[in-house]
Nucleic acid binder design. Structure first.
Lengths: 336, 336
DNA sequence: TCCTTTTTATGAATCGATTCATCTGTGAAT
DNA sequence: ATTCACAGATGAATCGATTCATAAAAAGGA
């Protein structure tokens, strides 16, 4: 129940001043080896652990980074997070991963938390309408970088892929493979990624002179894919799409599971392509075609941009890094 | 650059004392509606955000939970984390997820971090030798619950499945399906889960009078499975196992990918079973047999036990919850 | 030896929210 | 009219590590 030993206790035991203890903790080479050892011994003996709250209260800085993703269950985001975490570790920052679950309320709650904890910077894949808030936070000294989402303005750094190009590529591929009644599955359209991927697909469809059916979903999760799969599967043949572009691989895998269960042959009856190219895409029952994003690299670059701004707030110019996604064709959309 | 407004500024603007501001923040119903509204208006006007460091320094408590998992890329753990996070949210606690990546050094680093941040409790799937440290932390007021790992002693709460039974079930199934040269793939054996799953498999093999080959791996990741798959695939027919039990699904999927690439037929030439039954298991190129664990439920129960101890440190009795895992047979081990 | 520069050490002041002993004002009871 | 009880409000003291101006000690230089 005790609050544990403090620097004072350590100082007393080592017979030095509290300032010296603090120096051993933060600038060990400015302390005589003799005293340094005495202090370290005292720390070990008492089991002293520095109170981070007191530290960051006084010093103002917290040495931690927050990352807020749309869905931790999506391997795409854990891969991105891993890349970012590596960079954070190199800088000796701790890394707090939070999950908005595509829920605007949770997103706000976690931003509150980050702000209260005075994290030094935020990596975020926004869900709701948070850009204004992020700008306000930057003004108060907490910068942020948009991840997997192009900054519309020059006010943010962002690391993303060209979702529209990705969407276009996916749809062109489906049409080139013979699709006559293609569909897009995904949502919500307030999510920029979804809107862009759809816009690209629509452009490709229009260019080819075919109509694009749309099935809007409230989120991009596996379960939802299964549900839409059931709906699509139950359509009568003439109205049923013969090719589906899903806004991400989770949805696509859900669709695939439903189709498989219903005995719908993929790609013969319905061709299918996803987005992200998560590891499991290549391993699904029918290997899934997808649009590949450089997952870890996105995380690394985003963290690097964030550190650039943290360490050099004045001379930092906002940058938008945009990767070009890559078509990966597998059995789910290969021409029969 | 400013440090932002503090309670003092709010108090000045609202023309009340700092104590009243604090009361509005923490016990709003003890403040006259009139003043309460003035304070809230001032907070909004200044954009005041409470400094969590100062709060928890003074009050001693942090209202946050730490969770340390072996591998965030493994969907098993994100599912468990999700269950725990839900419970944490119900209690209005924030939830910090960290990733030891099966690395003892990182594990210690994150425990340091949790301790420095004075989290109220820890959920951990231990990798290295940390039980003593966890006991010391409990003595200092930070309790922990072991996740996916049975506590050997009565000193901890734990939520796990019976890994030995799971291992036995898996191996019995392989043998019943005709395996004559079964193998176990997994590691390191210092990981209790791995040791137990292997022990169960070994017991089943001995009972059936067949030898069990072992391929030890340094971790349980996808990549490693692919590597071992290549090694196994290159063995000459007579020495090559005809059935493999992998210590988790990630490994199993890696093995499967390698086998598929090498043209080895599963299950005809080599039968395969994993452990965890992650969502993707049912969706792999050849649907993967597995031993199912109740993933979210494990996380929920663990968090509940932790809260029980946090909120009632005196009258808390340690509990070991052990779920019985369940065999799920799919194509990867179905008799030909 | 004495003076200057550099290196180490000291400890009071500080960060910002919370706590709690104390004070004020209102209304009920005598 | 006087006392008592009590809800509300106050603000100085507090949590623990860091900072920084200052002092002391050590190392060079003349």
């Amino acid at each position: 129940m005790s609050t544990g030993p403090s620097v004072k206790d350590v100082a007393a035991l080592a017979q030095v001043s509290v300032g010296t203890v603090s120096n051993v903790l933060n600038r060990p080479d400015q302390v005589t080896p003799d005293k340094r050892k005495r202090v370290q011994a005292a720390i070990a003996q008492l089991g002293f652990v520095r109170n981070e709250s007191a530290r960051s209260l006084r010093s103002g800085s917290s040495r931690s980074l927050g990352m807020l993703v749309l869905d931790v269950r999506n391997p795409f985001f854990t891969d991105v997070a891993l890349g970012a975490e590596d960079v954070a570790e190199d800088h000796k920052y701790s890394f707090i991963l939070a999950n908005s679950s595509e829920d605007a309320r949770r997103e706000q709650t976690y931003l509150d938390l980050f702000e209260e904890q005075r994290v030094q910077g935020i990596l975020i894949t926004p869900f709701g309408d948070v850009l204004q808030r992020l700008e306000a936070m930057r003004a108060r000294g907490i910068p942020s970088v948009l991840v997997d989402r192009l900054a519309g303005s020059e006010d943010f750094c962002s690391v993303s892929v060209d979702d529209e190009a990705g969407g276009r590529t996916a749809m062109e591929h489906l049409i080139a493979s013979g699709a006559e009644r293609p569909a897009f599955v995904g949502g919500p359209f307030t999510l920029q990624q979804v809107a862009d991927r759809h816009a690209g697909a629509l452009a490709a469809a229009e260019a080819a002179g075919v109509a694009l059916q749309v099935f809007e979903t409230p989120n991009l999760k596996f379960e939802r894919g299964r549900q839409i799969g059931d709906i699509i599967g139950d359509l009568r043949q003439s109205r049923r799409p013969d090719a589906v572009f899903a806004a991400n691989d989770q949805l696509a895998l859900g669709l695939l599971q439903s189709f498989t269960a219903k005995g719908i042959r993929v790609p013969d009856e319905i061709a299918l392509i996803g987005f992200d190219d998560i590891d499991f895409a290549s391993q699904s029952s029918i290997p899934l075609s997808s649009i590949r994003q450089p997952r870890q690299l996105i995380g690394e670059r985003a963290a690097q941009l964030l550190f650039d701004e943290i360490e050099n707030p004045g001379g930092h110019g906002h940058q938008q890094i945009v990767f070009t996604p890559e078509l990966v064709v597998r059995a789910s959309s290969r021409q029969g």
